[in-house]
């Protein structure tokens, strides 16, 4: 069975890079701009760069928001990237719009820190907390490329799949719940390590997208 993969096109950034990354893995993505497009898909990707409020406003304009919430309630596969991850949450320090609320929690401004600059920009290794189809603990090189000034704080600790060290604290790198998850970094820009990660996600989809069980 071939999974039909949809890439949500709401005019926020890195669409092209994500498409190219999947093309390198021999997987084509269908652009999703309307609820009708969405219904043809088996799995969705929510990309995004930029600011929280304009992103939510753009997303509202596509009329996809109610469908995305139903999608998540039905526990269908969904992958958020960068700002896409932040939109999964309920709210953000960066704006006043309500997020999608697919996961419980708030997006906070990165703490001012002597050891780190803001934006948090560059490569850092992931620290695994819980299972996720994106992660394989045997993959020794899991350095990913980050660019962000805000980080989500999930209320439920089990939603947190991986963190990254930022100064003296750990911040969210990957969230995952059942079939839904997202990464704060850019796997599509993270060289071979990022390609391996996207390929793991594709393989998980093709293998039937087993929901992640957490004891």
């Amino acid at each position: 069975m071939s999974t039909r993969l949809g890439l949500i096109d709401y005019g926020m950034g890195n669409l092209h890079s994500v498409q190219l990354a999947f093309r390198r893995l021999n997987k084509s993505l269908d652009l999703v701009k309307t609820p009708t497009d969405l219904k043809k898909c088996d799995a969705l990707i929510l990309p995004g760069v930029g600011a929280f409020d304009p992103a939510m406003e753009n997303l509202e304009r596509t009329h996809l928001v109610p469908d995305l919430k139903i999608w998540a309630e039905q526990d269908k596969p969904l992958l958020g990237i960068c700002l896409g991850l932040q939109l999964f949450f309920e709210s953000s320090d960066e704006g006043s719009s309500a997020g999608l609320g697919l996961l419980k929690g708030h997006v906070q401004r990165l703490p001012i820190n002597k050891k780190e600059r803001i934006p948090h920009m560059g490569w850092a290794p992931l620290e695994q907390k819980n299972e996720s189809p994106l992660l394989n603990s045997f993959d020794q090189n899991n350095w990913m490329y980050f660019v962000h000034s805000y980080a989500a704080k999930p209320i439920k600790e089990r939603d947190l799949a991986a963190t990254v060290t930022f100064g003296d604290t750990k911040i969210t790198a990957i969230v995952w719940r059942s079939r839904i998850g997202a990464c704060q970094f850019h796997p599509e820009k993270s060289s071979l390590a990022g390609q391996r990660m996207l390929n793991r996600w594709l393989k998980w989809l093709e293998d039937g997208a087993e929901p992640l069980q957490i004891a």
Binding site: D139, N141, W143, L192, A193, Q195, R196, R200
Partner: peptide, 11 residues
């Protein structure tokens, strides 16, 4: 620094 990644294979 980020180590140089030569791992072409997927896992």
């Amino acid at each position: 620094v980020r180590p140089i990644d030569n791992e072409q294979s997927f896992r």
